[in-house]
Structures are given as C-alpha cells and as structure tokens.
Design a protein around this nucleic acid. Structure first.
Lengths: 235, 235
DNA sequence: TGTGATTATTGTCAGTTTGACATTTAATAA
DNA sequence: TTATTAAATGTCAAACTGACAATAATCACA
C-alpha cells in the first residue's frame, strides 16, 4: 500500500501575519500581490506548502523570503478551510503570526519584489480572501496571550524603557494604563534588568533602559496563569 | 485560470481528541483501527477532509459518526504536518478536541463498528502516528483554557455538585485543591445557580445540585483574563 | 544663573483577593 | 441516641489591586 488512492488531495498554503512595533505603534506587514488572482491587491505574505516541508517549515521559509530574517517568534494561529475561500481552486491556509521589532530589521531589508509595507492596525486596507479575518484573529490571539504571557517583549529591541513598553501594551489593547500601576506590575514580574544608561530621545529627563533577564524569561514564559494555585506545574 | 497548476496537492485529515468525564475521572475516547495501516492498533478518531467541507465540518462529521452526537463542544487544536507522519502517504492532520459528559451520552451510543473505548488519561495505550503527541497537546490546552475560562462545565451534566466539579478540576490538573477555597472561588464567579435538590449517592448528607446560569455563562465565557484591568473588553 | 516646562520615578492607602487552616451542620446507620 | 461521614461555612493575616499625588531629573530659554 503506497497511497490512500481515491481520497481527494488539497492545496495547502501558509500565511504569515507579521506584527511589528516601531516604538510608537503596532503594525502589520502586508504585500501587494504580484500575481493572479487579485493581482495588485493587498494581502498577508503566504506561500504553498512544498512536498518535503512541514507547515512550520513553510511559514519559516515564507517569513525569511520576505524579511530575510531567521529566529523570529512564530506561532501557529489557525487553519482556515472554507472550501470557497480561494476562488481559483480550493486551498486551505494554515495561518501563523510572527512578532518582530520593526526598527531592528530595517525597511530596506524587506525584499522589494514583494512591495511590502507596514500598516497601522487601524488602517489596514481591504485584503484578499479571508485575510482580514486572519488579522482580526491574530490581534485577538495576541491580546489573549499577552494578557497571560510576557510575549510582547518579542516586539521590542534588546534595550527598551518602561514608557516604551507601556506604549506597546497600550497599542495592543487600545487603551490607556495608569503608569504607576503599570510599572509596578511589570517590575513585579522580575523579568527586567535595569541598565545604567538612559534613552533620551523622547524626554528631557530620559528614561532608564531595561533588558530582559533571558534566563528568567525562558523559565517563566509559560507561568502566568491565575486560576491554579501552583501554575508553575503547568505549561 | 481555474487552478494553481503544478503546485503539489496534499491529503488532509481531521482527528478528534474526545475528552469525557464520568463523575470520577477524565478520560479520552479511542478507537481500534479497522483498516490499514496500523490495523488493530489504537488511535483517536479521524477521517479525511472531503472536497466540499471545511475542517470544522469534517471534525463535526467525524465526531457524530462515532458518537451519534451533535452540539458537542469542539475546538481546533493544532495542524500537524510532519511530512512523514503517515507512512503510507503524506497526510496533514488538523486536530480538534471535544468535551462531553460520558454518562449523558451512554456507551451503547458509540458505534460498534469503531470498537471505541474510554481510557483514563493515565492509561492511554500506544497510539499510531503522532496521536500520542496530539493527546498530550490537547491535555495541555485543556489545562491552559480551563485556567482562564469556565470550559470544564462542558464535561458535566446539567446538574452537578460542587464536590463533583472539584473532582473534575483535580483530575484535569492532577492535583488536590482545598475544598473551602475551591468552592469560594467557583461561587464567586456567579455562574452557578443552587438547586433545591441534592445528590445523595456519594455521601450521607448529600450535596446540593447546581446548574450553570446559561446567560451569565455565555456572557462571561471569554472574560477571565487577569493582566488587563478591564478584561470585559477582550475576547 | 535661574526658572519653567516636561516627562520619569517613586509613594500612599483603602478595598479586595488569596492561601492556610477549623468548626459546624445535615443525614444516615447502628 | 449516638457515631460516622462528608458538605457547608467561617476566620485571619498577607499579598495584590486600583485609584490617586508628590518628587526628581533634564533641557530650553530668559
């Protein structure tokens, strides 16, 4: 037996919702499609899954094709499967979302061939297929996860200030936080190490830089639950 | 243009990790495979995605084929895609997990043709392919979600007691809770409505039945986060 | 040199929640 | 009537939360 014979095969693609933070705003990276269908319209970056690669592999490949980057935070979001979601031919899409620091990976790195651009989340243009839905779901999942895990640090440079971090959280949740309570909460996580130097662009006084304590970050990444008495037993 | 031409198509299946609670223990429903490959071995219930159905549709169909049941809690878990996960032919699998009350849907309802059996989570036999990994991930996700959302009620009958509920939580988290703190926490959710009658099988005194307040349950299902000050804005 | 403007940093306090722990109550059986 | 069993309720100190205000560092400019 070398195949399942008469069962119908299916095209499978991956799509990457790439979030970036530029120090001010949370943004999403879109490309202008250079091929049919919907040529010239905006979409998230994607590609067909090749015979010898896993979905994760395909998503990683797509991500590096567009940004030239390795080692980006990447997480499976959802498998989209409406039979008619692609008008040409049935294609399922496994969506992933990625988090990166826009400034660190500069714009010129983006491959020109894809005509990629960063869009504010409030100004996402009309997208092809179900990509709008994908982005909505990715935003929702980002909020969900960030409420429980210190995931948003993936969007920041190595050194960052508390006010910058707060801006990021406020962008993700589209709300304002009390800065006193915010810094208390963040610092109580014991994940940040205060640096000796200051960021002086955005204020006269300057704000101290912090770095992630990588050891604690990796150890505590999965431990922010609150229902269970001993969350460190969970993942 | 009516197809993407030379791109390689792929077999796609769905697999359902079906969790059940019998009042004592958390269990998972497995079937004895009646076909090759791995005929005679245990696996979770699955099936190939048909041309005109979505993944959710396929999972729902598979679930009802096995249990005869509609309206079961069903949630997408993860898309498994290792190219060699099925030795016969490359097949991706979109895994779902389902929650149901074992007693309510009685054993005889299970279709005989599948030789289905409930297994304690501590006694899951060797499984085909990556199904062991699927179950591990499903357990993990169940713990994760149940820590934040009142999802475990899907495993209980309409009427249940606080001690029964605690048994369920203890089963899911493989730990013990203080019963005083547990009931205080559960009741503080304001999701339960005390009934007039008691369950008297398991104790002399008997324990009052409770029912879910469906209205509050649906309204609060998505609101257990704790990082954000106003979680009711989130989903 | 001093002063005002701006933003970072630190602090207070009352109300709530948490975790650890003990007592009372209802029903049954002997 | 009493012993037994498990349910239900109660206490308290510590930790945490949300609302709110005062101080400190730096720069621009008079």
């Amino acid at each position: 037996m070398t195949s399942y014979g008469k069962q119908k095969r299916l095209l499978v693609a991956v799509d990457c919702i790439i979030f970036g933070f530029d120090g001010q705003e949370l943004k999403v990276l879109l490309i202008k499609r250079g091929f049919e269908p919907e040529k010239g319209k905006w979409s998230v970056m994607g590609g067909f899954v090749q015979p010898e690669e896993s979905f994760e592999g395909a998503a990683t490949r797509v991500l590096s094709q567009l940004t030239g980057l390795q080692d980006i935070y990447l997480e499976q979001l959802f498998a989209f499967s409406r039979p008619d979601r692609d008008p040409i031919e049935r294609t399922a899409s496994i969506a992933y979302f990625a988090l990166l620091d826009i400034n660190q990976y500069h714009r010129q790195q983006l491959k020109h061939e894809f005509h990629a651009e960063w869009f504010s989340l409030s100004q996402v243009p009309e997208l092809i297929f179900d990509h709008t839905e994908m982005i909505e779901m990715a935003k929702e999942k980002l909020r969900y996860k960030a409420a429980i895990h210190p995931i948003l640090f993936e969007l920041l440079p190595q050194k960052f200030t508390i006010p910058q971090l707060q801006l990021l959280y406020e962008g993700v949740y589209e709300t304002d936080f009390d800065k006193r309570n915010f810094s208390r909460k963040i610092l109580s996580l014991k994940l940040l190490v205060k640096q000796k130097d200051k960021e002086k662009e955005s204020s006269k006084r300057g704000a101290f830089y912090y770095k992630l304590d990588k050891r604690r970050y990796n150890a505590n990444f999965h431990s922010f639950l609150n229902f269970i008495a001993k969350p460190h037993n969970l993942k």
